[in-house]
Design a protein around this nucleic acid. Structure first.
Length: 338
DNA sequence: TTTAATGATTACGG
DNA sequence: CCGTAATCATTAAA
C-alpha cells in the first residue's frame, strides 16, 4: 500500500491539477497517439485528484462516472504501467522465498509427534513409538502413556482449531482486501497482478503468524514429552524386596561390587527391573558407599549377618537335601568371574 | 515445610 | 559402552 500512497502523492506533485502536461511525457504521448486531446486526460486526472475532497455520495457518483468514462481502460493501463515501473525496485526485494528451513523443521517435528498430519491413528502410533523409543518401562507405562496421549490429543486439538481460525481469518482478510482493491481500482491504477501480489503478501504475513503457533505447539509438545518421558520426573522407588536383593548382592561382593552382565540380568529378573536400572543402582550404590562408608556400616552389617544366616540355611538345607519353601532366600550364586 | 534418600541423567575419561 | 562423579527431580521421612 505504501507504493500506492506514494503514487498518489507523486501524482499530486506532478499534477498542477490543470496543466496539460500532466504526468509522464510517455503517457501523454501515448494518449495523443490514440488520438485523444490532452485536455481530456487532464480533466479526468483532475477529477480523480479532487475526489477525496468531495462528500461520500458525491465521490461515489463520481467514481462510477469515471469508471464508465470511455478513456478509463486506456488511462488505467497506462497508469498501471507507470506504477509498475515505479515499484519495480520494491518488488524485486521479496520474490518467492524458498521454504523457510525453520518452518520446515517445525512442520517435520509436528508431523513426527503426530500433532499435524493424518488423524488419530497416525498420532497415537507416533506417540507409542516415541514412548517405546525412550526406553519406556514396561511396567507402569500404560497409565502414563494414556495420560500422555490424552494431553497430546488436547494439544493437537488446540493446534488444529487455532490453525483453522487463522486460515479463516486469513481468507476473510484476503477477501476483504481483494474487494477493497477491486473497488479502488475503479479510481486508482491497481492492476490484477498487483492484487495478486498483495494477496501473496497477506499470505506470507499470516503464515508467519502460523509459524508462531507451530513454534508454541512444538514447545508444548516438548514440555509434555519431558514431563512424561523423562523418567526422573516419574521416579518410583524400588520395592522393598528388590532393594533387599540388590543390597544382598552388593554387600556380599563388597570387595568387588561389579556384577557381570549375566549377574545383572539375573538381578534384574529377580527385582523386576531393567538391566540398566540394575547398573544405575550399582553405580549409585558404589559411589555413595565410597563417599561415606560410615553411614552404610549399619546396613553392611545387617546384610552381612543376613547372608551369613542364608548361607547357614543353605548349608543346613543342603545337608537335609531339602528346599521347598522360602522363595525369597537369595541364593548365593557361585560366580564364575574373577 | 524442610531434609534425607534415591533413581535417573549428564559430562567426561578409558 | 562402562565406570565415576556431580547433579537433577522426585519421594519418603523428619
Amino acid at each position: 500500500m505504501d507504493d500506492q500512497t506514494r503514487m498518489l502523492a507523486s501524482m499530486g506533485g506532478l499534477g498542477g491539477l490543470s496543466q496539460a502536461d500532466v504526468g509522464d511525457p510517455d503517457s501523454v504521448r501515448k494518449q495523443q497517439s490514440l488520438g485523444q486531446p490532452p485536455q481530456d486526460i487532464g480533466d479526468i486526472l483532475q477529477q480523480i485528484m479532487a475526489i477525496t475532497d468531495e462528500s461520500l455520495d458525491e465521490a461515489q457518483a463520481r467514481k462510477h462516472a469515471l469508471n464508465c468514462h470511455r478513456m478509463k481502460p486506456a488511462l488505467f493501463s497506462v497508469l498501471c504501467e507507470i506504477k509498475e515501473k515505479t515499484v519495480l525496485s520494491i518488488r524485486g526485494v521479496q520474490e518467492e522465498d524458498p521454504p523457510d528451513p525453520q518452518i520446515m523443521r517445525l512442520d517435520n517435528m509436528l508431523l513426527a509427534e503426530g500433532v499435524s498430519g493424518p488423524e488419530k491413528g497416525g498420532g497415537s502410533a507416533a506417540a507409542a513409538a516415541a514412548a517405546a523409543a525412550a526406553g519406556g518401562s514396561p511396567n507402569d507405562g500404560s497409565i502414563e502413556h494414556s495420560d500422555y496421549r490424552a494431553k497430546l490429543a488436547q494439544i493437537r486439538q488446540i493446534y488444529h482449531s487455532e490453525l483453522e481460525k487463522y486460515e479463516q481469518a486469513c481468507s476473510e482478510f484476503t477477501n476483504h482486501v481483494m474487494n477493497l482493491l477491486r473497488e479502488q481500482s475503479r479510481t486508482r491504477p491497481i492492476s490484477p497482478k498487483e492484487i495478486e501480489r498483495m494477496v501473496a503478501i497477506i499470505h506470507r504475513k499470516f503464515s508467519s503468524i502460523q509459524m508462531q503457533l507451530k513454534q508454541s505447539t512444538c514447545e508444548a509438545v516438548m514440555i509434555l514429552r519431558s514431563r512424561f518421558l523423562d523418567a526422573r520426573r516419574k521416579r518410583r522407588n524400588f520395592n522393598k524386596q528388590a532393594t533387599e536383593v540388590l543390597n544382598e548382592y552388593f554387600y556380599s561382593h563388597l570387595s568387588n561390587p561389579y556384577p557381570s552382565e549375566e549377574a545383572k540380568e539375573e538381578l534384574a529378573k529377580k527385582c523386576a527391573i531393567t538391566v540398566s536400572q540394575v547398573s544405575n543402582w550399582f553405580g549409585n550404590k558404589r559411589i555413595r558407599y565410597k563417599k561415606n562408608i560410615g553411614k552404610f556400616q549399619e546396613e553392611a552389617n545387617l546384610y552381612a549377618v543376613k547372608t551369613a544366616v542364608d548361607a547357614a540355611n543353605v548349608s543346613a538345607q543342603a545337608s537335609q537335601a531339602n528346599s521347598p519353601a522360602t522363595p525369597n532366600s537369595g541364593k548365593v550364586h557361585r560366580k564364575k568371574y574373577k
